[in-house]
Simulated scan of single mutants.
Amino acid sequence: MDLALDIKALANEGVNGLHPYQPGKPVEELERELGISNIIKLASNENPLGLSPKAAAAIAKASVELARYPDANGFYLKQKLTNYCGVDADQLTLGNGSNEVLEILFRTFVSSGDEVIFDKHAFIVYALLTQSAGATSVAIPSVDWGHDLDAMLAAVTAKTRMICIANPNNPTGTFLTPLQLQQFLAKVPEQVIVVLDEAYFEYVPVAERANSIGWISDYPNLVVTRTFSKAFGLAGLRVGYLVSTPELADLLNRVREPFNCNMLALAAAEAVLDDSDYVNQSVLLNSQEMARLTQWCDDNKIDYIPSYGNFLTVQVDDAQSVYRKLLQQGVIVRPIGGYGMPNHLRISIGLVQENDRLMAALNEILATKK
C-alpha cells in the first residue's frame, strides 16, 4: 500500500471541511472524566419524564420479533400519523429521527452550486448538510434572535434551492406566528423548497400553533418535518417524519434507505401517539417549569431569550467558564458557541428537582463572579 496516499483528496469536496456535529455531553462521559455520580443532564432537550408507559409496553411486545426485519414502509405508524396530522399516507416519509429526513431531503434536492438559506442561529445541521452536498450556505442575520423573513426573501437568487426555518427555533426558542409564515410562503418562488422544521411543535400552545401541514395543498414547495424525540420522549430510538405532497414524498422514498426505522422505534411511536395523557403531562410540566425558570432569571437579572421550546437560552458572562463549573457540580447544560452565541448557554427544562439543583448551582457560580 502507498503510505503517502492522501485519503482526504479522495473525499467529496464538501466533506473535507466539515466539523462533526457536537451533541450534548453524555452523562457517562462526565462520570468517567470527573469520577462523580448523581449527574443531571439538561443539555439535549430530552423529555425529562422518561419513556411513555404505553411505549414501554409496545417495546417489550415488539422485542420478541427482533430477529426479523422491521416493516420497511412503516405501514402502521403511517396509519397513526394520517389521523394525527390529517394527511394521506402517501404524503409521509419516515426517518431515523427528523435529522435523517432532512438528510434525505438534501440528498434528493440539493447539489453542488445550489444555495440554501437559513437563519444565522438556526439548527446547525442545516449548514452541515449544505456543505456535505457541495452547496453554499446563506446564513441570514437574526432580528431579536429570530428569523428575519424579509431578509431571507431578499437573499433568494436563481441558485436558491431551499430555505430552512425551524419553528420554534433551536437553539434560541424563538417563534414565528402563522400569519408571518403564510405571508412569507406566498412570496417564495415556487421552485424554492421551504423546510418548516417543527421538532418542538407539541410545546407550542394550541391556540398559537400554525396549521402548517394544511398549507401544503396551497404551497406544494412546502415540507414539514417533525420528530418523536422531544415531547413524545423517544430520543433514544430515533424516529421522525416529513410531510409533503405525494409527488415530493415519492422522490424522497426512492432515496430513503430500506428499514431506516427499526422495529422498536416503530412500535413505540405508534403507541405514544395513543398516549395523550403522557404527552399532555410532558407539555404541562414544561410550561410550569419554564415559567419558574424564567421567573428565577428575572429575579436574578439574568438575560434570556423567551422560548417556545422545551429549553431556555440564557446569557452569562464567560459562558464556557460557567459551563465547566456546572459540570463540576454534576449539571450538564449546552454551550452554543458553535451557533455563533459564545455568551449563551442552552438549558433544557427538567424535572422540578433537577431545575432546583440547576438554579442552586447557578446561584453559587454567579455569586462568585460578582
Rank of each mutant, 00 (worst) to 15 (best):
T313M: 13
Q315N: 13
G338Y: 06
V352L: 09
A11H: 08
A62N: 09
L327S: 02
S282V: 08
T368N: 12
V314H: 04
G236R: 12
A360W: 05
T136I: 03
E247C: 04
L179M: 08
A56D: 11
P258F: 05
K80T: 06
S287V: 03
F184D: 00
A186I: 02
V322A: 01
L242E: 10
R292I: 06
E29H: 11
G338I: 09
F184P: 00
Q182I: 01
L242K: 01
Y21V: 11
Y69G: 07
Q329I: 02
V283P: 09
E190N: 09
V223L: 11
G35L: 02
L81I: 07
V314L: 11
K325V: 01
L181V: 09
A249N: 06
L3Y: 07
N47W: 04
P246H: 03
Q91L: 06
D90H: 13
L49Y: 03
I36Q: 07
L102Q: 15
V110H: 08
A231F: 03
T368Y: 05
A291N: 06
P70A: 11
Y219K: 01
G309S: 14
I59R: 15
P70H: 07
A154E: 09
R209A: 10
Q329A: 09
Y304F: 11
V138Q: 09
V125K: 14
G74A: 12
T160F: 04
F228Y: 14
S132N: 13
T294K: 04
Q183N: 15
L251K: 15
F311E: 00
I163D: 05
L3M: 11
L179P: 01
F75L: 15
G95K: 10
P141C: 09
K120H: 09
L102P: 01
Q180A: 14
H19D: 12
Q182V: 01
L153W: 02
L248W: 01
D356H: 12
F175K: 02
L293Y: 08
L30Y: 03
C164R: 00
E270H: 03
E190R: 15
Q131M: 08
G24K: 06
L222W: 07
P171S: 11
Y323A: 02
T157A: 03
P306N: 06
M263T: 05
T177K: 12
E208I: 01
A231Q: 04
G233H: 02
R256H: 04
D318P: 00
L351K: 14
L242I: 08
V333T: 15
V279C: 11
G113W: 00
L92W: 05
L176P: 05
N355H: 08
I336Y: 01
N99I: 12
L105I: 08
P26A: 00
G173H: 10
N221C: 12
A67P: 00
K369P: 00
L181M: 14
C164I: 04
K61L: 05
V322Y: 03
D277W: 04
G86M: 03
Y69W: 07
T82W: 05
N12G: 14
Q79A: 14
V195A: 11
I349F: 03
F259Y: 15
V331I: 15
A265P: 09
P141T: 07
V331W: 03
L51V: 12
L327R: 12
F232D: 10
L351N: 12
P335E: 00
N253M: 09
E208V: 01
A60N: 08
N300V: 04
T108S: 15
